[in-house]
Amino acid sequence: MSAPTTIFRRPEALRDAFTHYCPGCTHGIIHRLVAETLDELGLRERTIGIAPVGCSVLCYNYFNCDMQEAAHGRAPALATGVKRVLPDRIVFTYQGDGDLASIGTAEIIHAANRGEKFTTIFVNNAIYGMTGGQMAPTTMPNQVTTTCPRGRDVNTAGWPIPVADVLAQLRTPAYIERVAVHTPRYTVQAKRAIRQAFQYQAENRCYSFVEVLSTCPTNWGKTPNESVQWLEDVMVPYFKLGLKKSPDRPPVE
C-alpha cells in the first residue's frame, strides 16, 4: 500500500486553536477562506489584519498573522493608518454588519471612497451576534430580534442596507462582490472572490471588499440546517450575490 498523502490540512495562516464560534456559525468557514488565500498568495508574513468588535473580535486567536483589534466600527480607520505608513504590506479588515454597516458606516464609506489599498471581509449575518441578537441595519424585513420583537418594521427601521451595492455606487475604482458560504457551491465562489480581493491588493490596484452572507443559528433561533435554508430563502433573494464592481471594468462615461 502506498504512503498516505495529505489532501486537506489547516492552512498555515490559521492557528491550531479551539473555536469559540457556535455550532453552525459560518464565521469559521470565512476565516478558513481568508487563511487559504494568504497561504496561496504567500502573503501571511507581510499581512496585518484588523479585528472588529463583534463575535469575530477574537479572530486574532485564529489568524496566524499580525493583528490589531479596533474599536467598534473603526477597523477601516485603523487599516488606513497601517496601510499609509506601511504601503508595501497587506492589510485587511474583518467586520460584522453591526460594526461595518451601523456604527462604522462613515469609516467604511470614506475608506472605500479614498480608494485605500486594503481588503475588507464583511460578514453579514443580519443580526448583532455578540451582544445577543439585536436588530442590525441588515436585519431582514419582519425578522424577529430582541430589539424588534414584532419583527423589523421597515416603516420605522428602514430596509436592510445592501452595503456592497451601496459602496459600488462610488466613482472611485474598487473590487466589490457579494458571496455566500452556506453550501459548498457558494463557498467555492466565495473563495474565488476573496482570493481576487487580496490579489488586487497585492497588485496595489484598488480597495477591495467582499460581503459574505453568514449564518447565526444561535441568535436566529434556528438549527444549523434551518439557518442554511433561511439564508437561502430569505437573505439571498434580497442581498443579490455577484460582482458589483471591478477595477477591470471601469464605469462607462
Binding site: I50, A77, G81, V82, H110, R114
Partner: peptide, 26 residues
C-alpha cells in the same frame, strides 16, 4: 511623511491607533 484628511475626528484619531500600532511616530 503621510498626511491624511480624515472623514471625522473619530476616524482621524483611530487612524493614529493603526499607524502607531504599526510602529510609526504619529
Amino acid at each position: 511623511g503621510v498626511f491624511v484628511q480624515a472623514e471625522s475626528e473619530l476616524a482621524a484619531s483611530q487612524m493614529i491607533f493603526g499607524a502607531a500600532a504599526a510602529g510609526a511616530r504619529v
